[in-house]
Each structure stands twice: as C-alpha cells, then as structure tokens.
Nucleic acid binder design. Sequence first.
DNA 1: CGTCAGTTTGAAAGTCGTCAAGGGCCGTGG
DNA 2: CCACGGCCCTTGACGACTTTCAAACTGACG
Lengths: 253, 253
Amino acid sequence: MSKSCIHHRLDALDFLDTPDWEQLDHIVANLERAEAGDLVILEKQTLNLTRIVMTGWGFRYRSLPDGQRQILNFILPGDIVGFHAMVIAQTESGLEALTDMTFASFPSREMVELHQSHTRLMLALSWIAGQSERILDEQITRIGSRNARNRMAHLLVELYIRLRQAGFGREEAALLPITQAVLADALGMSAVHANRSFRALQKQGLVDREEGFLRLVDISALSRFAHFDHEYLEPDEMPPPTLTALNESELVN
Amino acid sequence: MSKSCIHHRLDALDFLDTPDWEQLDHIVANLERAEAGDLVILEKQTLNLTRIVMTGWGFRYRSLPDGQRQILNFILPGDIVGFHAMVIAQTESGLEALTDMTFASFPSREMVELHQSHTRLMLALSWIAGQSERILDEQITRIGSRNARNRMAHLLVELYIRLRQAGFGREEAALLPITQAVLADALGMSAVHANRSFRALQKQGLVDREEGFLRLVDISALSRFAHFDHEYLEPDEMPPPTLTALNESELVN
DNA sequence: CGTCAGTTTGAAAGTCGTCAAGGGCCGTGG
DNA sequence: CCACGGCCCTTGACGACTTTCAAACTGACG
C-alpha cells in the first residue's frame, strides 16, 4: 500500500482539505511499535493517549472474574484507539496485539485542540469513531441473536470487508491472523465449540486453515450463509447539513 | 427532579462554564414527545437529528431476517441519541419508546457548530457519548460471557446505577418499566428462558414483580450475584490535560 | 527429540430454545 | 353485568445447542 490505511479511509470520505491533511500528517508523525502478544493497553489504567493503527491487528478485550476473556472487537489498520481518552482517561478494556503493530500515537489533548483549529479533521475522526460504534452494535447482535456457525461466518465476513475498506486487496483481506481460540473469545463460545463450528464451515468449503492463518475461501457463500447485511459497514458520505454548517463557519473566520 | 437529567449528569462532571450552560439551555429548548410503543427512529433511515432524552425510557434495537429483535442498549433520561448523526446520517438501529418519552431535539448541524463555538459543551457531550460506548462494551461482555441468570442480574444492576446517576432516588431507580419479553430481547435469550431466569432471581429474593413493573428488591445482593464491577459506570472527572488544553486555547481567543 | 501452542475428536452433562397449554389481569363491547 | 380478546406471565416436556472433561494429534522450534 502506498498510502497508510487511515489516509485510504479518509480519502474515500472525500471531505478533507489540504490543511486538514497536513494536520493529519503532523499527528501521525510519532510512531510506536508493539509485538504480537503485547498488552498495549491494560484494563483499568489511566491513559491520556490516542492512537491510530498504521499496521497490524489487535483486539480490545475485557476480563471476567473467572479468568475468561471477552473480545469486544478487532482493531485493524486505520482504526482509532482511545478516541474518547480526551474526556475519559480511565480505560476499562485492554488492547492486545494479535500481530506486530505500529501506531501513530499522540496526547489526546491534541484532540481537544482539533475541535477549534481543524474542525473538519475532527469530524473525519468522529466519522471513524462512529463506524466503530456501529461495529459494536453488530457484535452485540451477532452474539445475542445468532447460532455458533452463523456468528463465526458473520464475523469473518465483517473482518474481510473492513480490511478491504482499509485498502487491502482481495487476497490479503482473505487471510486472517486469528486462531480458533481467539475466535472463541470473540464470539462468546468455548474453544471446543469454536473448533466444531469452524470445521463445519470448512467442510462446506467456506473457510480453511493455511500456515497459521485462517483463509476465507468463498466470501460470497460465507456472506450468504451468515445472512450478512453490508449496510452497517458502508462508508456513508458526510451529511449535507454538516457540509453547509462547516462552510458557513469558515466564512465567519 | 428540579433539574433535568442531562443537567444533573453534566453538573456532576463539574466542567461547564456559564456560556456553555446557556448554550445547553438553548439546545434543549425544542421538546418532542413520544408515546410508549412508538418507533421514534426506524432502522435504516436517514436522519440529521440529535436528541437528548429528557424523560422516559426507550431502547435501541436491530431486527434480524428471521424477525427476531436484538436490543442493543437501553436509553434513559440524560442519554444522547444520534450523537454521531452529524457525521453518519444513516441509522442502522431503531429506537422504540418503552414508556412515554420527551426529547430535546435539534438538527445535528448544531453539533458541528459547537466544536468551535462551545468546545467545552461539545466535550461534555462527548463525555456522555463515551460513557454510552462503555455500556456497549459491557453489553457485549454480558451476553458473551455470562450465563442467563447472571446476565439478567447484571443488566438490572446497571440500569439501577444509571438511573441513580441520572438523578433518580433509590425508590424510583429500583422500579423498572420493562417486561420479561424486553429483558429476553436485551439479553439474547428466549422469553421462556428469561422467565425461568427471572423466577430464579425472584425465589432468591433479589427481584419481584409489581404492578407491571420489575422491582429490584435487594440491589447489593443482586450486585454480588452478578459479580458487578461498578467501575465502568463511574463518572470520571475530565482529564487534567484536557483542562489545560482548553484553558490555553481560551487564552488565545 | 521433547516441548509447546494450536487443533481435533468423543462422550457425558448442562444450558437453553421450542412447542404447547394454561393462568391472571384489564379494557372493550354486548 | 358478563363475555371476549389481548398482553403478559408461567410451567412441563422434549429436543437442540453448547460446555466440559479427557485424550490425542499436528507442526514449528530449539
């Protein structure tokens, strides 16, 4: 990829002006690394830091008293971690790196400044945050209202589409660095049952294993099987009223 | 209640200045009514409107192809609906009124203007939105990693605490206007099983039915039973770096 | 060659959904 | 006044789904 994923996503939005792109470059200047397995953020720590994922996969999770772990959602390139750190410094969920990762990290006080100095950029970041919230809604629906094999198929299709939207090709986006144990924690089922569900999908020719990766073999069949409704992932355009409101406020300045 | 719930919550934050309070009053001027059972927002509509709940209960939900309905979260007085409408006009979840409700509603383009004109107020609203997101995280954890009776107890305690934080008294906050069918949809279980789980809690003296309401009889026992961890609902203070960033930007003006 | 993480399978037990039927309460209309 | 329908709650029986326990297999790695 020539452009970073965050650029790719915001470019598709077709909303930012030159000064905003420059400000984004400025924010993204300070890079940070993590290795697969690192606990980048712990549960219940105080953190005035916002990150944008440049490369690699991770997941947010919460631990339960009995030692179980619930994965809340997957964090992919172009996602923002700690968007709300400017107003809520206390973390409840942890962040674990699934692969090696790189982040652009910056003090969340800079998010405060963006409100006034680069409102368009702030709105673009809010747009990404809003998409993440829809993904949480979908995770609730998935876990609450679908059986095991549907849950799994549905999540896999979601990951594929999100990767495509972040700029990955068909091949790359179909090869997922997740183990069955991780799938189990994400889908709220036991590892044994995750394996049985996976094998069922495998027998139907929908997925396969490949050198430590999970391969999506037939995405459209997988999508049909999961009754997948694309819409919640569609990157809508910026609403017209927002555009006019912005233009008016810029005239004032 | 002398003050509205949104005032009560933001007052606890101890962050807003007089101009922000005035702007909030201005935003909250236009009231809208809904009756119990009304579909205030439909799934998949375009809506450039943001609402603040003044009175009454509702819930956000998504429908599935088989007609099932998953309740994503409950909407209580002081909550914001459509916070992201300024950047994402397309709704995926619907909003149904559980009781009669009143909203303060305003075009979401006003949210855009707040970024520059009333940054503190915008941050305060973001603070509420951030809390809502934590509640989604907890809903995922609840549905994904707890058994039926724990799920139910946990949700009930959450609702109690949220109501208390919105300014309701111990008595009021312990009387919930939800049926067992609604509980079932929220917890991702069948109505029959919701009833069995409820009866189990009832036999333990934790909850009871009362004139169409669900009564929380022993909240601390319920909380222990659910292994409830208060922290995700604690209304943290505004982070110090955010305060200094704001003060500096105000000096510039 | 042994270890380890990840995967696989069977069997038994537990949780949960579905189907079916019935009860209580309340407002409407005869 | 009573019959009726509608909504909500309740229960039993049965079957489906899921977890747990235990054991074994695979490939990568030192």
